[in-house]
C-alpha cells in the first residue's frame, strides 16, 4: 500500500518536473566518467546509490547514510588533505540545501582539486517525493556562483555531459555542476551502511594499513 502511494507520488513529481529530463541512471555515470580518477564523497540516499552502483561500492568512495549536510565539507577536508588527488562530491539537492553555508566556506578556500556535483531532481525522493526548494524555484548554481565559486555549470540535457565530464577534471579552482535529472528512482543497490567499516576501508585503500 505504502509502495503504491510512493509510486503515485513519484509519478506526480515526474509530471510536475518540467525541465528535469535526464535519466540519472545514465547521466551520472556519463558525467563522472572514469570514477577511479576521483576520491569520492556522496550524500545519502540517491547519490550514495548512484556511486555505489557505479563503483561497486568501491573503497575510494565514502557514502553518507545519515549526517545530512556533511558531504560538501567532508569533500573539502579531504581535498585539503590530499592536494595530489582529485576529489568529487556527488550530492543531492536536499542534502546540499541543508548546508548552503558550506558553499561559502568552500569558495573561500577554493581548492583546485575539488569538484561538487549536485544531482538535482527537485524533490526529496527518499521521503515520499515531496518537492524540494529547487523544485520550487531555488537555483543552486546561482547560489554556488553567488557564494564565490567561479567555475559553475548547469547541465540539464545530454548535450552537456561530455563537456561536463572534462569540466570536473580541470581548472585551477573548485568547480560546481548542477545536474538536473528527472525525479526517478536511483539505482537499487545495497550499499554498506557501516560508517566505521567504510572509513577503515577508505583509509586502508588510500593510505595503506595504519
Amino acid at each position: 500500500m505504502q509502495e503504491m502511494q510512493t509510486a503515485a507520488a513519484r509519478r506526480a513529481a515526474e509530471a510536475a518536473a518540467a525541465g528535469y529530463v535526464l535519466d540519472r541512471l545514465e547521466a551520472v555515470p556519463r558525467l563522472v566518467g572514469r570514477h577511479e580518477d576521483f576520491l569520492i564523497v556522496t550524500g545519502l540516499a540517491g547519490t550514495a546509490r548512484d556511486i555505489a552502483r557505479l563503483t561497486g561500492d568501491g573503497a575510494h568512495a565514502y557514502l553518507l547514510g545519515g549526517a545530512m549536510g556533511a558531504a560538501c565539507m567532508m569533500g573539502l577536508g579531504l581535498a585539503l588533505a590530499r592536494p595530489d588527488r582529485r576529489v568529487l562530491v556527488l550530492t543531492g539537492d536536499g542534502e546540499l540545501l541543508m548546508s548552503l553555508g558550506a558553499l561559502a566556506t568552500i569558495a573561500v578556500m577554493n581548492p583546485p582539486n575539488l569538484a561538487i556535483v549536485c544531482v538535482d531532481n527537485g524533490h526529496y525522493g527518499e521521503t515520499g517525493w515531496q518537492r524540494s526548494h529547487t523544485g520550487l524555484g531555488v537555483d543552486l548554481e546561482r547560489i554556488a556562483a553567488g557564494a564565490g565559486i567561479r567555475a559553475t555549470r548547469t547541465i540539464a540535457d545530454a548535450s552537456g555531459l561530455e563537456e561536463g565530464s572534462r569540466f570536473i577534471r580541470e581548472g585551477n579552482g573548485t568547480c560546481f555542476v548542477l545536474l538536473r535529472v528527472a525525479p526517478t528512482e536511483p539505482p537499487a543497490y545495497k550499499r554498506n551502511l557501516d560508517a566505521s567499516a567504510c572509513r577503515d576501508r577508505f583509509r586502508a585503500a588510500l593510505l595503506g594499513a595504519r
Partner: peptide, 25 residues
C-alpha cells in the same frame, strides 16, 4: 590550512574528510 566556517557543524564534517585523507585537524 586555516578554515573559517559559517557554522560549526561544517567543521565536524571537514575533520572527518581530513581523516579520510590522512590529515589531522
Amino acid at each position: 590550512h586555516s578554515i573559517p566556517l559559517t557554522s560549526e557543524e561544517e567543521g565536524v564534517a571537514l575533520l572527518a574528510g581530513a581523516d579520510l585523507g590522512g590529515a589531522r585537524g
